[in-house]
Amino acid sequence: MPRKTAFLYTDDFLAYDLGGKHPLQQRRLQLVDRKLASLGAFETITRLAPTSVDEALLGRVHTAEYLEVVRQASKPNHGLDLRRYGLGPGDTPAFPGMWEASKVYAGGSVDAARLVLSGEAEIAFNVAGGLHHAHPWKAYGFCVFNDLALAITTFLEAGLERVMYVDIDVHHGDGVQVCHWDDPRVLTLSLHESGRWLFPGTGGVEETGGENAPGSAINVPYASYSGDEVWWPGFEQIVPEAFERFAPQALVLQLGADAHFADPLAHLQVTSRTWMRAVEALLVLGKDIPIVVTGGGGYNIATVERLWTLVALTCAGLSCPDSLHDTEVPMLDAEQQRTARAYLDSQLDALRGGLGW
């Protein structure tokens, strides 16, 4: 169903540069923007440059100590011991201009929330957003600031009482869960490869929210190498019911493209058509409420370009060329899929029991 859609993009996103050999290469974002332009999508989709996030808002998600460390670590010769703050060497190395670059991608998700709150857009897509591993006090998993928590906080401060977050990245949305662990106004729902096999090692079905917010976190973990016939039932059996029970007033989506079978950093075997089936289902569920869409993980650049272009076109109700979908699909081992389905079924039984569904 067509909806008034905004797309947040600037070439300044490329300044979030973790290094030439790092798996996270932000030229993938530029490729999505250029692909949409080549398809004439911006005749329908409103393309906007993001603004830098307000520092006061940053302080409502991240600690003052951590923010000051990020600011100082962005300068040369800072002389700081950054290990306790997650800023490398390692997954998330500090880099010159990190403070400014991180504020821009985070600002894109805040802008997206404000656009849909004001009615200027019904759906707003910050393609650089989705950095879901950042914690209030540390960087983690390629993520410096948690733009998703900032978007959710923007909704809450505008007076919304129920905001639902859905994450289909292959990695658990741990940072968003941590930020809103004890807040009954926020439901975080993550579908991911199980932490038994994949970073960050969290996201078990027993993680269901803090003392003051029982049931506010839902996790659907999958066995490695789960294909479409396993992944889709997990989505179908949990997400619509969670939406109906919670009745959110706004939806924040993290659409990491790394659950796709061609991604080099994980093991799920989801195809573009099944992944987009989930995206389409989420857009239908949220048809009457504001939606913020973000990117996230995705380390096969060609796959990211295709999938996030499909997302933007679908949000706006535009036709999607078949060329954007997979031309080949993975060959899956039948016994492995039976094992994966048995694992999922056991996890869903435990999840429903823990939630009292």
Rank of each mutant, 00 (worst) to 15 (best):
T309L: 05
Q337K: 05
A262C: 11
P264T: 01
L324D: 10
A281I: 05
R341F: 12
E305F: 01
E328M: 13
W275G: 10
I301L: 15
E305G: 07
P330I: 05
L355W: 01
A266R: 03
T314L: 07
L332M: 09
G295E: 04
D263W: 02
M276V: 11
L332N: 00
Q336K: 08
L348M: 08
L318E: 14
H260R: 09
W308H: 03
L324Q: 06
A312I: 10
H260W: 09
L307C: 10
D333L: 12
C315R: 00
E328T: 15
D322P: 12
V311Q: 02
Q269K: 13
L268I: 07
G297H: 00
Q336Y: 11
L355Y: 00
R338W: 12
A350G: 10
I291M: 06
H267E: 12
V329R: 14
D326K: 08
L344H: 10
L348I: 14
A257D: 05
T294N: 01
V284F: 08
A302S: 15
A281Y: 10
A350N: 10
A262V: 09
R306P: 10
V284R: 14
V304A: 01
V293E: 01
T274L: 06
R273M: 11
A262R: 15
G295L: 06
D322Q: 14
H260E: 06
A312C: 07
Q336A: 15
A316V: 12
S319M: 13
L355K: 01
L324R: 07
A278C: 14
A262F: 09
T314W: 03
I291Q: 08
R341A: 15
H267P: 00
A342K: 14
L268Q: 07
L307G: 09
T309E: 11
T271S: 08
V311W: 02
V270N: 06
Q269R: 15
T339A: 14
C320H: 10
W275S: 12
E280T: 11
D263M: 05
P321A: 15
V292L: 00
L348G: 04
V292H: 09
V293N: 02
R338I: 10
A262S: 13
A302W: 04
E280A: 14
A340W: 04
A350I: 11
L324F: 12
V329K: 14
P264S: 01
L332T: 03
A312M: 08
K287Y: 04
L268E: 04
A334K: 10
V293H: 07
